[in-house]
């Protein structure tokens, strides 16, 4: 039972913590990747978040809340890392690493590309909020608790992020139309 693993890890059992990482890691990694859009950076963020989780595990009051607690740590690490990235000077550009191509069964390549570009233009916390809402499935009030913000703030940022994504799609559509006319 995972509660037992969490409690064992809180008592300093490293093997129990590693078992938790094995059983939960895929989901954690997927969240980090969706916020950061980069395999290597997601891997780094996940490692850092898990080490913080281990270090502070005794502060977790309810072992059943382990997942949500790690989601909070991981989201904060991802936001911090994305912030660091944006602050780099103009001459330091970290080339994004190609991901294995995903199957295009539901969204076309062009639409996927538009979504990706629009998403990358969002602030790090807006990206995180979108992922927590649309990938993890948290309600705005749960995201607010997770990130230590008011529910109103979360709703406002969600609204802004949705609007920005919609604007990005519309802008790309307009650009494509203009390009097609002039070609």
């Amino acid at each position: 039972m995972d509660r037992d693993l969490v409690e064992a890890a809180q008592r300093g059992d490293q093997a129990a913590f590693v078992d938790l990482v094995r059983s939960r890691g895929d989901r954690f990694f997927a969240i980090a990747h969706r916020i950061l859009r980069d395999v290597d950076r997601a891997e780094d963020a996940l490692q850092d978040a898990l080490v913080i989780a281990w270090r502070d595990l005794r502060d977790l009051r309810d072992p059943d809340r382990f997942d949500a607690w790690v989601h909070r740590l991981l989201t904060n690490v991802c936001i911090a890392q994305a912030g660091r990235e944006r602050k780099r000077m103009s001459n330091l550009y970290v080339l994004p690493v190609d991901d294995p191509a995903a199957p295009d069964d539901l969204l076309g390549v062009a639409l996927r590309d538009q979504l990706d570009r629009g998403f990358r233009r969002l602030s790090a916390d807006e990206r995180a909020i979108l992922v927590l809402r649309h990938y993890v499935g948290y309600e705005p009030i749960e995201i607010a608790e997770l990130l230590g913000l008011s529910a109103g703030t979360i709703r406002s940022r969600l609204h802004h992020a949705h609007r920005a994504m919609r604007a990005a799609l519309d802008a790309d559509a307009r650009a494509a139309a203009v390009g097609g006319t002039s070609a």
Binding site: R27, F29, A102
Partner: peptide
């Protein structure tokens, strides 16, 4: 968002 890597 459902697409993409899911394996750590």
């Amino acid at each position: 968002l459902d697409d993409g890597p899911t394996t750590m």
